[in-house]
């Protein structure tokens, strides 16, 4: 397990995010890209039907139940390059809430505005966004307001335009980059004015609280979770 350096710990505390360049690379990245593209293509028609029926969001889509579709989607949950930091920040008591294997269409407006995901009363809630393709500036890259995760930060208001957010930083990056952030912090997907969809995976974690995730949630992938660490991460034993 690669634990965070003192500098990384300090940045996490002060700014609420960490960037892991080349977090996933080589054969693992190719596996991830291949599985992502295969399943995104396979699921697209059904997603469009659901959009037409008013049952799905029109501006992006997620591969349903990705953990059941390819083991690479399980392997990235506890991937060594960032897993140690996740464990360290949650006192080695981490659970997975869920993955979003997401394709975001180019569109004149981003599909979401600036927002935090949770309030400060929530147990520590962490997301890791992994770019599956290269994400250039102006093509839906992640945006974050450093320091906005702190209880005494702000107040913040949502601006009409993403780029008008006070104090924000954007994170273009190469495929395989992972960005970890405290979900109390204000974040966004910047506008994608390119002609390339943004492919990314958003992994959602939380510091364990009893009963948060039941043992049935990930029972279908139990065979891939034989170590005590994984069973704990996936809440397989309650």
């Amino acid at each position: 397990m690669i634990l965070p350096t003192p500098e990384q710990k300090a940045q996490w505390e002060e700014e609420g995010y960490l960037v892991f360049e080349n977090a996933i690379q080589g054969e693992d990245l190719k596996r991830l890209q291949t599985a992502f593209d295969y399943w995104a293509d396979a699921c697209k028609a059904e997603w469009l039907d659901r959009v037409e029926a008013g049952e799905s969001v029109a501006t992006f889509y997620d591969i349903p139940n990705p953990l059941e579709k390819d083991p690479i989607f399980i392997d990235i949950i506890d991937y060594p390059s960032y897993y140690g930091a996740l464990m360290a920040f949650t006192d080695h008591d981490l659970i997975l809430l869920g993955p979003q294997v997401r394709t975001v269409a180019p569109w004149p407006v981003s599909y979401t505005g600036w927002h935090p995901d949770v309030g400060h009363s929530n147990p520590l809630h962490i997301k890791v966004q992994i770019y599956v393709n290269d994400v250039q500036p102006g093509s839906g890259e992640f945006g974050f307001v450093p320091g906005s995760h702190k209880p005494d930060a702000g107040p913040y208001t949502r601006p009409m335009r993403q780029e008008s957010m006070t104090g924000h930083k954007t994170f273009p990056g190469k495929a395989g980059t992972a960005i970890m952030f405290n979900s109390c912090g204000w974040h966004v997907s910047m506008d994608n004015h390119s002609d390339t969809p943004r492919k990314s995976i958003i992994l959602i974690y939380e510091k364990r609280t009893p009963g948060r995730i039941g043992p049935k949630q990930y029972a279908s992938i139990s065979d891939y979770c034989q170590t005590p660490e994984r069973r704990k991460l996936f809440s397989l034993d309650g």
Binding site: V57, A58, T59, F60, V109, Y111, T112, G113, M160
Partner: peptide, 10 residues
């Protein structure tokens, strides 16, 4: 769902 489409037209 509309917060990701029509609400964004604000």
């Amino acid at each position: 769902l509309f917060m990701h489409t029509t609400y964004r037209l604000a």
